[in-house]
Design a protein around this nucleic acid. Structure first.
Lengths: 140, 140
DNA sequence: CTTTTTGCAAAGTTTTTGCACGCAG
DNA sequence: CTGCGTGCAAAAACTTTGCAAAAAG
């Protein structure tokens, strides 16, 4: 059975967000959004495409959709093993930080429990991202 | 004039690093390394390629070289306007903190003056990177 | 009804591969 | 010497573009 990980509860919020930004809510965009929340983390475009072709999404549609999502702060590009990947932004997902293993390439989500940042920035920060690099326990 | 930004002083260190990792030091690798230090920040592969073709570097060589550099902790992939780019790692360069403008796409290096991170990580952290996203002063 | 978005086909890039040759160690 | 790296050419993979048709609001 098509186990939809119960993230559909975020759909109303997604739809609202689209409306407020005059992005039309189409079947394709819902599917891309759902795929992203099912993955639950960074997904590259080829990976998303492979997941979505079976549901009738064409490559140009996926690429244009991702661009629209990035421009409208629905997803954010992040690195996944050196490649650009896309991850939902809050409020659609908890914005977490990543730990990258330099040995095996695994990426783990981090909870930054105690984080104090005082950055001198030439602008206004909307959100931030922290990536730690090292060797994971499994590789030691 | 062929202004070589005097980063050639790092070449000996680069060569030493290669030797210790049994990477052969070739003309091509030196050129890629120099190009990266001249850029002084994240550079995408097409950008590096364009800079280097005139010096006789072929695309496959550049790609294989970057892979070798990543595997050997000479460069690190980072994001530059949503695209994968490559940046020298310490000890060859520092500033791994960036501010990305969501409006114009500019990327600025940050000085994190007061930074206290207490990350619970499933491994040993060698270094970290902070990316802040927002709107730059120029776009306001 | 108007405007945005998608489908499709095709072109344009970027990236990878395989193999022979050459250079670093 | 002895491989590791590179050059070259070709193939594969990925991404973008243009326009007509469809769908959303």
């Amino acid at each position: 059975m098509e186990a939809e990980t119960a993230n559909e509860q975020l759909l109303p919020e997604f739809i609202e967000h689209c409306r407020s930004r005059k992005l039309r809510v189409t079947k394709e965009r819902r599917l891309v959004f759902l795929a992203l929340s099912e993955v639950g983390g960074p997904a590259t475009r080829p990976v998303l495409l492979q997941r979505l072709v079976s549901k009738g999404i064409h490559a140009p549609t996926l690429y244009r959709t991702i661009d629209a999502f990035v421009s409208n702060q629905i997803v954010q590009p992040v690195l996944r093993n050196g490649e650009s990947a896309y991850e939902l932004l809050p409020p659609f997902a908890h914005h977490h930080h990543h730990f990258h293993c330099l040995s095996c390439g695994a990426v783990a989500a981090l909870d930054a429990t105690d984080e104090h940042l005082d950055l001198k920035v030439p602008g206004t920060v909307l959100y931030h991202q922290i990536d730690a690099y090292g060797i994971c326990d499994a590789c030691l």
